[in-house]
């Protein structure tokens, strides 16, 4: 299928980039002051030379950097991310525990940002330079300028502390023993504020792009052709303008996958969500370099997968792309 072919070709080009990331990050971490063993010793309150030597050998830190990089890449191919000294279990296991929360947060935020952006952007474009446009554009600008962690904190003050409508943090009420449907409801209640916090900045970006792109497409020749055919304005917007205007947005979603993952670091910290972003923060603070490398690898894979899906969607929307490639 040409559609899949296009997306697969794009997928291939991300392999060299992935390699650059892995090698780059590995080299970067060689400059880090102290390694995992130092961090471990700091936690244990020191140890004698023989213990340290043994630990270094155990974690494979006694070999040269090149050898270790070779080993590391070799293990990655087998999806072996190594062992986390801090958590005392394989990195893969630590990450898998944390991944679902982040995925849920990203998916719900992306959905909210996209839907909100398309609807509000379209509304603004249809009433361009009138008051609904001014209102929507102003709100969009404010959202764009608001630091997400601050918005999260303020949301917490209003909805959790003052109004008591929503929980102020965490993924679920652990002691409550909810099961089945009620557990889902509980998780959903916990996700409302984080989702809003993460989504609003993207919503404001999509809103602006959508508005601009609707306005631009409206001036194109084929819209005039449709008018000359006797098509009414509603049908022109829904059939001719909207789909063309969506194309630049779809491209952006691919680019934003990684930004969003970065943003979830902060949001997860604000709401004490046990996700990948918070894990990254903890790994930095505790100098758990194996875990950090593992997170880098998984994040990169995640972004590449999202981009693959976006390419599929793009090729589905735009017949021109299917045979041409870029």
């Amino acid at each position: 299928m040409p559609l899949l072919g296009f997306a697969l070709r794009r997928l291939l080009t991300s392999i060299p980039s992935l390699l650059i990331i892995l090698v780059g990050v590995f080299v970067l971490l060689q400059f880090a002051p102290g390694d995992t063993v130092d961090a471990l010793l700091a936690q244990m309150g020191g140890g004698d030379i023989a213990v340290i030597e043994n630990l270094r050998r155990f974690y494979g830190l006694d070999a040269s950097a090149t050898v270790r990089m070779g080993r590391y890449l070799l293990r990655l191919v087998q999806l072996d991310l190594g062992f986390s000294a801090i958590y005392g279990k394989p990195v893969a296991e630590v990450i898998v525990e944390r991944l679902p929360v982040t995925l849920l947060l990203m998916a719900s935020s992306l959905l909210l940002a996209l839907l909100g952006g398309i609807v509000l952007g379209t509304m603004a474009a249809r009433r361009v330079n009138k008051w609904p446009d001014a209102l929507i554009s102003t709100v969009g600008l404010l959202f764009y300028a608001t630091p997400s962690f601050w918005l999260g904190l303020m949301g917490m003050v209003v909805f959790a502390v003052k109004l008591g409508w929503l929980p102020s943090g965490g993924y679920e009420e652990l002691g409550a023993g909810h099961v089945g449907f009620w557990r889902l409801v509980d998780i959903a209640r916990h996700m409302v504020l984080p989702t809003l916090t993460l989504a609003l900045i993207f919503l404001s970006i999509y809103l602006r792009i959508m508005r601009a792109s609707m306005l631009e497409v409206s001036t194109m020749d084929f819209v005039q052709t449709a008018r000359a055919k006797g098509v009414d304005e509603t049908r022109i917007v829904t059939r001719h303008v909207l789909r063309n205007a969506l194309l630049p947005m779809v491209t952006l979603v691919g680019l934003h996958a990684s930004t969003m993952l970065g943003g979830s670091c902060v949001v997860e910290s604000v709401f004490t969500l046990p996700g990948l972003g918070r894990l990254a923060y903890e790994a930095v603070v505790q100098r758990d370099l194996n875990t950090l490398l593992g997170i880098v690898f998984i994040s990169a894979l995640l972004v590449i997968i999202v981009n693959f899906l976006v390419d599929l969607l793009y090729a589905r929307l735009d017949p021109r792309i299917r045979e041409k490639g870029r």
Binding site: D221, F222, T225, A228, K229, V231, N244
Partner: peptide
């Protein structure tokens, strides 16, 4: 006027590439 456009008066434009919707 919409009932006239396309039904009683047809129009052809200069640039056939941009005058056609690329996605349909």
């Amino acid at each position: 006027m919409r009932a006239v456009r396309g039904a009683r008066i047809g129009m052809i434009f200069q640039e056939p590439m941009s005058a056609l919707n690329p996605l349909h």
